[in-house]
């Protein structure tokens, strides 16, 4: 009787070891890049890992330039870049636009101003312009409303406008919804939210920038100035590891693009 038990124990133990080794055989996809893509990359990673239990998405967020270096050095499979690639970078890297990040400017519904130039918008947020009559509106003080410092939308907005760290906010809100409510309440208010949030039911008024209305079309066509592409880049001319290729395919699939939309970004596929 006893030898059988021993044999059974040995077999069971071997099976256990086997299981452990099986789970160790998971492949990892290393991502590196833009911190303003952190939320969307994490959401995409979760969505992907739900379907592919044997692949681990491990992202790092040291910035776009870090992402390019890591891909070039082979430390990362995919780089997350929140700007256009330079011609120099295009020699070694292939970029796929996975989404577009568009920021709409909203004002109180009674505001007569229909549009601003980027220059005027920058002046408003840095405090050089403090009354709507200086930009073609009624005599009314401007209340510049923005997001809190931890917000990716704020980082993008200030970077695209070239005013990083120089903005003087009259109010800071911790969500797009908070900005919309505050803009509705103050007649002189101006605020910025992602396009997705601006489309959602609200009494606030979207205004044009440089004569271009914010919409998925103008952002996709590259006409709307307060928008930037979000790219995933891979080394040129090398076959991608299977797991990394599967992740890229997922990102560009219907499902991945839905995840992107849920993160208040403009998907590249309709």
């Amino acid at each position: 009787m006893k030898p059988y038990r021993l044999a059974a124990a040995v077999v069971a133990f071997a099976l256990l070891i086997g299981c452990r080794q099986g789970s160790l055989e998971q492949t990892a996809v290393a991502l590196s890049g833009s911190s303003s893509m952190e939320e969307v990359v994490r959401a995409l990673g979760e969505g992907f890992m739900e379907r592919n239990a044997n692949i681990i998405i491990s992202p790092q967020f040291g910035g776009s330039s870090q992402g390019i270096r890591d891909v070039a050095d082979g430390k990362a499979d995919i780089g997350n870049i929140s700007r256009e690639l330079t011609d120099e970078e295009k020699k070694d890297l292939d970029g796929v636009t996975i989404a577009l990040d568009g920021i709409a400017i909203i004002v109180h519904p009674d505001n007569r101003v229909a549009g601003l130039t980027l220059r005027q918008l920058a002046d408003i947020y840095t405090g050089k312009v403090r009354n709507w009559d200086q930009v073609g509106g009624a005599d009314l003080p401007i209340v510049a409303i923005g997001r809190d410092a931890a917000s990716g939308t704020r980082t993008s907005f200030e970077a695209l406008l070239g005013v990083s760290g120089q903005c003087l906010y009259g109010q800071e809100k911790d969500s797009s919804g908070g900005i919309k409510i505050a803009v509705e309440a103050a007649p002189g208010a101006v605020g910025y939210v992602s396009l997705e949030a601006a489309k959602a039911d609200s009494r606030t008024k979207k205004i044009a920038l440089e004569g271009v209305e914010a919409s998925e079309k103008t952002i996709r066509d590259g006409d709307y100035p307060l928008a930037r592409p979000l790219l995933m880049v891979v080394p040129k001319g090398e076959p991608l590891p299977m797991a990394a290729q599967a992740f890229l395919d997922y990102v560009l699939s219907q499902e991945g693009q839905e995840v992107i939309r849920s993160q208040s970004l403009v998907p590249v596929r309709r």
């Binding site: 405090g127 403090r130 109010q171 505050a182 309440a185 103050a186 002189g188």
Partner: peptide
């Protein structure tokens, strides 16, 4: 109160 001020950051009452 701050009509025409060029240094006050208007808060809209908040």
């Amino acid at each position: 109160l701050f009509r025409g001020s060029s240094s006050h950051i208007f808060t809209g009452g908040a």
